[in-house]
């Protein structure tokens, strides 16, 4: 009886410690974001940002655009088979554009971004930490937060919204290819129905706000996981996995909240 009670108490203690650890990590992450995202970048910082933009943005372009094309095409194909039952295939453009702009482009681009760029950021910074490059930087008086972390954060913040725009544009074009060129929806009604129903502020604007939020969250998680990991090879692999898992969950969860706030009243 006594030992059982003791065991239960240890369990509770462990739970409490886990909670405290999680809170500490969240606090560290917040301070980390605050310290690294502020401050005017120097000329050198600008160059570093540019290099990260190339890596995080330009090199992610291919996978994002190809996915966007296929998702737009699939949307048009699926939408057509449903809409044609109601004789409403003119509404295809509206359906493709609204689902891409409001939902699919921000979310899928963010998920791809987490897989393509986020995991690489974690692994890179993690290896820098494991090989003690970060510590040596501090020793020679260079702040690793400003030198290593800040350019990566800002590159992520800027790159993901641009990638999202590209995803939408290519997706709508893919929907046009399938719907108009292949299935024979009248071209004029594809575009005019879209223009009549898409509002720049409500649909494009809210999609951009979503993708900006996702950009901050995904990049933040990726960079922080790299900065905060246990500096061993196992630690790096775990942190990379955590980056993808946490960012995917955060993106999908936040997407629901943002959608409820933005479109819940419509």
């Amino acid at each position: 009886m006594q030992s059982k009670f003791k065991q239960g108490a240890t369990q509770i203690t462990r739970l409490g410690r886990k909670g405290c650890d999680a809170m500490e990590a969240l606090g560290r992450a917040g301070v980390f974001l605050g310290q690294s995202a502020v401050g005017i970048p120097s000329r050198e910082g600008w160059r570093l940002w540019l290099r990260q933009m190339h890596f995080v943005g330009v090199l992610s372009l291919a996978i994002v655009l190809v996915s966007g094309l296929f998702i737009g095409m699939v949307l048009a194909l699926q939408g057509y088979t449903i809409l044609v039952d109601f004789g409403a295939e003119q509404a295809l453009g509206q359906m493709v554009a609204l689902s891409l702009l409001r939902e699919l482009a921000p979310v899928v681009a963010a998920l791809l971004f987490a897989g393509r760029a986020g995991s690489a950021l974690t692994a890179e910074i993690g290896l820098m930490k494991a090989t003690e490059q970060l510590t040596s930087m501090e020793m020679i008086g260079v702040d690793p937060l400003r030198r290593v972390v800040a350019p990566r954060l800002w590159a992520g913040f800027v790159a993901l919204p641009i990638l999202t725009v590209g995803f939408s544009v290519v997706g709508i074009w893919g929907g046009y290819l399938v719907g108009v060129e292949w299935l024979g929806v009248f071209e004029g009604s594809y575009w005019s129905n879209m223009q009549a129903s898409v509002s720049f502020i409500n649909d494009v604007g809210n999609g951009m706000i979503k993708s900006l939020v996702f950009a901050v969250v995904v990049t933040w998680i990726a960079v922080f996981q790299g900065y905060d990991l246990v500096p061993t090879s196992e630690g790096i692999s775990r942190a990379t996995t955590r980056t993808v898992v946490y960012s995917s969950l955060a993106v999908l969860g936040l997407d629901f909240v943002l959608t409820a706030v933005m479109f819940g009243g419509l």
Partner: peptide, 10 residues
């Protein structure tokens, strides 16, 4: 792309 979304899509 944003201009396209503004002019052509919305």
């Amino acid at each position: 792309g944003l201009v396209f979304l503004g002019l052509r899509v919305s």
